[in-house]
Write a protein that binds this DNA or RNA. Sequence first.
RNA 1: GGCGACGUGGCCGAGCGGCUAGGCAGAGGUCUGCAAAACCUCGUACAGCAGUUCGAAUCUGCUCGUCGCCUCCA
Length: 507
Amino acid sequence: MDQLHIQNTLTKKKELFVPLNAPFVGMYVCGPTVYSDPHLGNARPAITFDLVNRYLRHLGYKVRYVRNITDVGHLENDGDAGEDKLQKKARVEQVEPMEMAHFYTSLYQDLMRKLNVRRPDIEPTASGHIPEQIEIVENIMKNGYAYESNGSVYFDVPKYNQEFNYGKLSGRNLDDFIAGGGERISEEQLEEKRHPADFALWKNAPPEHIMKWHSPWGVGFPGWHVECTAMSTKYLGKKYDIHGGGMDLVFPHHEAEVCQSNAAIGDSHSHDLDEAKYWMHNNMITLNGKKMSKSLGNNITIGELFTGKHPLLAQPYSPMTIRFFMLQAHYGGTLDFSNEALQAAEKALKRVTDAFQRLNGMHFKAGMPMAHDPEKEALLKNFEQDARAAMNDDFNSAKVIARMFEVVPVINSIHAGNALPTDVNTLHDFRVAFNTWYTDILGLIPEETAGNVDSKTEELMALIIELRKTAREEKNWGLSDKIRDGLAALKIKVKDTPHGTEWNVED
RNA sequence: GGCGACGUGGCCGAGCGGCUAGGCAGAGGUCUGCAAAACCUCGUACAGCAGUUCGAAUCUGCUCGUCGCCUCCA
């Protein structure tokens, strides 16, 4: 594909990407609720939309990327007077809700930095946008798609459905809702709600509720879905280009956003506002075939992944291994987690990273021995366009990585001292392209040098390698192997290559 | 019950009607004092059954199986 196409949840089709207002692109992604340790599942949308963000920028778009922090919390049970998650956790930990939100926000940001996820351009908090949320609710009421009940405000789904198409995003309809979820609606809720499908825009706060604000309807707190509509509208406009998030948010969260957007700011001439033009959803990560989630209690936190301290983990996995593991699969499919798969990803990443570093260490000069190899030359010359074609096909990073691996043997062959398969200019161009894809678009960073190697260590190692070289020249294998084994015990790996002896610290 | 996804070689995972995906693991070989790394070669898979087609892993139908959403979740 020579132009970017995106799988659009709204239309269920893969569509050509045409920004509403090129070269500007607005993108909003649902961020974390900051009340607990971020888990592996949280990393998937972050990395998925980091890839999208990076690629759009690579294509030259002026992207404004907004990813929110949900720090107001949602009720544990829809519609009843139960405690919200944040408040409950704060009480258990005996801290201010905001103190806890700040703690987990920082933790999340720190983990994202390790995963080399670029910071969004705006990272708004729900608590910081209460007036904007109230305004959205007021607009919806003004337009007649909401009603007040006992100090709470509910979205009038049946009314909305008369003029708009409720369920267009998730492929549901009101009848299905009643047939399925209706039975789960508690009687308590129905006291306030007119229809089981109605959802809260504003909720009255019981006295014991800590996080509450003044509103035209009394003291309360915003409903579950308004924050995203309010913040995306504020920073990206009534309709923007891309809204992203996990698949589990399609219903009810994103469906509600579509409703709110149309009801609050749509008019009779634009029933297709739908908040965003392209709705993108990453699939779930599974663990032994089951969805990994907080509520199922089978989640692994990102921190545990890095340290390896979890019963299911055979070893620690580095941030780049996690990132690479995710990019090796298309974001639209489930990704099953296992030690075996992660270990394979770790080795694969090392292979491509080694090649990356070798490539960057090469000095191409005119007049180097050259043996034209049409096949290898084609791999190098086509790399950029092949990678781009894969990426244009709904961000198929898995395919991009496959193309990288096809080029790795060529790089290694040159590094091994074989003749250049093509001319120096082609090699230069290829190197630039490979760097761009590895570093800028996939967002990978070589990790090996992360080991604490200071200049003194460098000098000592140079001396040791020199001594071993002497031993080898004297065919004193006993001594040279003793040195190598001794270093290996210190996690320093020695390799004798045609260019001399190399070493590196393993983690 | 409603809506939806998926089932690819030992494992992970691309594939969207014809042309080798790729990685990991495994086998053989080259190089090397040995090792490591690297390079070369090797598996011929598509849940099952019908059908459409000159031709299907790819389209259609059915069967079986797995999973997700319908309640906060990425």
